[in-house]
Amino acid sequence: MNALSPFVHRTPIFTSETTNRIVGKKVYFKMENQQKTGAFKIRGATYKIMQLKREELKKGVITASAGNHAQGVAHAAKKAGTTATIFMPVHTPHAKIDATRNYGAKVVLTGESFQEAYEASLELQKETGAAYIHPFDDYDVMAGQGTIALELLRQEDRIDTIFVPIGGGGLISGIAVAVKTINPHIKVIGVQANGAAPVYDSFQKKKPTNWDRVSTIAEGIAVKQPGKSTLPIIMKYVDDVVTVTDEQIAASILYMLERGKTLIEGAGAASIAALFAYHHHFKSKHCGLIVSGGNIDLDEMSHIQKLAALNHVGSESIAINS
């Protein structure tokens, strides 16, 4: 049992015979879209806040987020009896903004991307002295996210490969360290949207690479630069990083809605899209997929349907373009 057990859900794994048949592997979807607040982020936020001293909690906490981390911090702060101020990009889906406010946090909308919101939040943190809960570039946050791997490998100990979406890298860093500690032979594959892939570039070039602009329907992983703490971990422990298109992500969202009767967001669909796109490239018999979240703006569904149509796939032919 990990330290977070009393505070977070032990999310289920979902299997699909159709998926297994399409890719020729046994596939296990780790459904973090069914986690409290609808995403894995509550794990890292809760673990980080658990480490704060009483004097620190009195000053409140502050962060920046594209949405899911915001809800995780807001929920964890409320449980800890402290206040939370959260900076979010102006184009964050309304559902994520409203949910964050409903958990009791103060929301400040600013900037076109996470990076602008992050920079603004740092200015306020300097003024107030509130504890900063970074969405990914913090070892305690990474450790909290790594509990997903501990659960997954207890639920299915035959897993030999795990696909993990990457934004700033906190999720995959925590998972990779946990996985490699348990069994160094398990492959950890990172996934980025090709319109927001600075970690992919950094991994390929073997040096930090920042992007000036990112564009993807997977706003939860739309990060312009890798974390200073996460990137070295990714370089050391992750076996490969791949990219997927928005069309592939959109098709995967619809696939899970049709086949799994479950709604997932773009970031959560990235690992699924990578499985369909690259399954021939990885020798895996038992493959785990981190479905990282399900907080999607329903107003975007018509756009997602149009993108999926561009990928020329149906519910069973999603792998045609792989």
Rank of each mutant, 00 (worst) to 15 (best):
M1F: 11
H9N: 11
R10C: 05
T11Y: 05
I13Q: 00
S16H: 07
T18S: 11
T19Q: 03
T19I: 15
T19K: 04
V23P: 05
G24P: 15
V27H: 01
V27Y: 00
N33F: 08
Q34M: 13
Q35G: 13
A39S: 15
K41F: 07
I42F: 12
G44I: 03
Q51R: 14
L52P: 15
L52Y: 12
K53Q: 12
K53R: 11
K53C: 10
V61S: 15
T63C: 15
A64N: 11
G67F: 11
G72M: 10
V73W: 06
H75T: 07
T83R: 15
A84I: 02
A84W: 03
A84S: 14
P89F: 06
T92N: 06
T92G: 09
T92H: 06
P93F: 08
P93T: 02
K96D: 09
R101M: 10
N102F: 00
A105K: 02
A105P: 15
A105Q: 05
V107S: 01
F114A: 00
Q115K: 05
A117H: 02
S121C: 03
S121R: 04
L122G: 06
Q125V: 09
Q125H: 02
A130L: 01
Y132H: 05
I133H: 00
P135M: 09
P135I: 01
F136Y: 14
D137E: 07
D138C: 04
A143G: 08
A143P: 00
G144Y: 09
T147W: 04
L152Y: 01
R154N: 12
Q155Y: 06
R158P: 09
T161E: 04
G167D: 07
G170E: 02
I172L: 12
I172Q: 08
I175M: 10
V179P: 06
N183E: 03
I186D: 13
V188A: 01
V191A: 09
P198R: 05
Y200W: 15
S202R: 08
F203Q: 09
Q204M: 09
Q204E: 10
P208H: 03
T209M: 10
T209V: 13
T216A: 02
A218M: 10
A218V: 07
E219V: 15
A222M: 08
K224M: 10
Q225N: 08
P226Y: 01
P226I: 06
K228S: 08
I234K: 12
K236T: 14
Y237N: 06
D240L: 11
T245G: 11
T245L: 12
T245C: 13
I253P: 15
L254T: 09
I264W: 05
A267T: 13
A269T: 08
A273F: 00
A273H: 00
A273W: 03
A277L: 07
Y278V: 01
H280I: 04
H280W: 00
H281K: 14
G288D: 04
I290E: 01
S292H: 07
G293V: 07
G294D: 03
I296V: 15
D297G: 13
L298M: 14
D299K: 09
M301G: 06
M301W: 07
M301F: 02
S302R: 12
H303P: 01
I304H: 05
A309W: 05
L310F: 08
N311I: 04
H312R: 04
E316S: 13
S317L: 14
I320F: 04
N321A: 07
